[in-house]
């Protein structure tokens, strides 16, 4: 299949489009669970590498000439299945993964020894982990347990893959489903809960500053991105369990504005499929001004959060439906994965 046949650019949707850059086929993998990118430095050269995860291993792919990729390292994790890769935003030569059966039971760091080049693993946290997020400045936040027994912990990560210090955050009496750093406020973190509240923490003191209800029309909201502007807290949310609404269909993402002083909020924008297309949100990721989601139809949809519209659609190709979508470290590349382990990289421009 040629690149031209696979590249789908629906230019009538907006000014931006997706162009196929390369394809990785992992011959040993038939159980792709996640894909991500990481900066990797070796011999004085830092490159953007692709990470692919199947249930029993995580592989790092280095770029070659002419859009080809070479599998450079594979960490084997045979005892507990890999559930997801946890991107650490400003970290080089370090991979964070979450492992478990139905829910996350372990968080591990994967690295390559600078002394002898051997592949290493370092256990960071164990427990019934409900939510985990890599934060800026080499930190990792995770919540374990539920309700009154919930523990929320920030771990600072050293280059050698060890934890430097651990700090606890005050737990809300509700299970946390997802975290997001607040852009524009260095020490602020938000999380969405199973009771559909948005919680704001001060990362320095660990205290909960506010708990605000997201709204009864939006069950089990997942926060993807948060930013503070003009005294309001804007949060990009997805609602995997939302019921379809006659007026706006079933949006994949919404932006809601919260006033943290009064705990009142209002809907700002929603991001639905263009007319004539259908499919519910399955999973997705937001980076910068771009949001991408895999839909039940096996199509990937991309939205521009500033334009407020869907800018590209990537229908299933001849190899099958899409099951994973991730933005690269730089939001100009989109990684699209299929169940058989195939990963396609698209330029989004």
């Amino acid at each position: 299949t040629t690149a031209e046949q696979l590249a789908v650019a629906l230019s009538d949707l907006g000014d931006r489009s997706l162009h196929l850059a390369s394809k990785l086929k992992n011959p040993s993998s038939s159980c792709a669970v996640d894909v991500s990118t990481v900066w990797w430095e070796s011999a004085g050269c830092t490159e953007l590498c692709i990470l692919t995860a199947c249930e029993t291993s995580v592989s790092l792919w280095k770029p070659l000439a002419s859009s080809q990729w070479r599998k450079a390292y594979t960490w084997h994790l045979a005892e507990i299945p890999v559930i997801q890769i946890v991107p650490l935003p400003d970290v080089c030569n370090l991979v964070c993964v979450a492992l478990g059966e139905l829910e996350i039971g372990e968080i591990r760091l994967l690295l390559c020894s600078s002394e002898d080049g051997s592949l290493k693993q370092s256990l960071m946290r164990t427990g019934n982990i409900k939510a985990v997020l890599g934060l800026t400045n080499r930190r990792l936040v995770s919540s374990s347990g539920a309700l009154q027994d919930q523990q929320i912990e920030i771990i600072s990560v050293l280059e050698a893959g060890r934890s430097k210090e651990r700090q606890s955050l005050m737990p809300p009496e509700e299970t946390i489903l997802a975290f997001a750093e607040v852009e524009g406020i260095r020490d602020a973190l938000v999380g969405t809960t199973a009771m559909n509240n948005l919680v704001i923490w001060n990362l320095k003191t660990g205290q909960i500053l506010k708990k605000m209800h997201v709204g009864y029309s939006y069950p089990a909201s997942i926060c993807h991105r948060a930013y503070s502007d003009s005294g309001l807290l804007f949060v990009v949310l997805s609602h995997p369990h939302a019921k379809e609404n006659e007026s706006c269909g079933n949006p994949a993402f919404r932006v809601r504005a919260f006033n943290p002083r009064t705990a009142r909020s209002t809907g700002v924008m929603f991001f639905s499929l263009p007319p004539g297309h259908s499919g519910r949100y399955l999973e997705g990721e937001v980076k910068g001004g771009s949001a991408a989601a895999v839909l039940t139809s096996g199509t990937i949809a991309v939205w521009d959060l500033f334009l407020g519209q869907c800018t590209a659609l990537l229908p299933p190709n001849t190899d099958g439906k899409w099951s994973l979508v991730r933005w690269s470290v730089t939001d100009s590349c989109l990684l699209a994965g299929q169940k058989d382990g195939s990963v396609y990289m698209y330029h989004y421009s």
Partner: peptide, 23 residues
């Protein structure tokens, strides 16, 4: 969204809520 919907807005909400949350 207007201020009347959301109530009085403060540009320093994070600092104010952090001070109020101190024991």
């Amino acid at each position: 969204c207007s201020e009347s919907d959301l109530g009085p807005i403060s540009l320093n909400w994070f600092e104010e809520l952090s001070t109020e949350a101190l024991p």
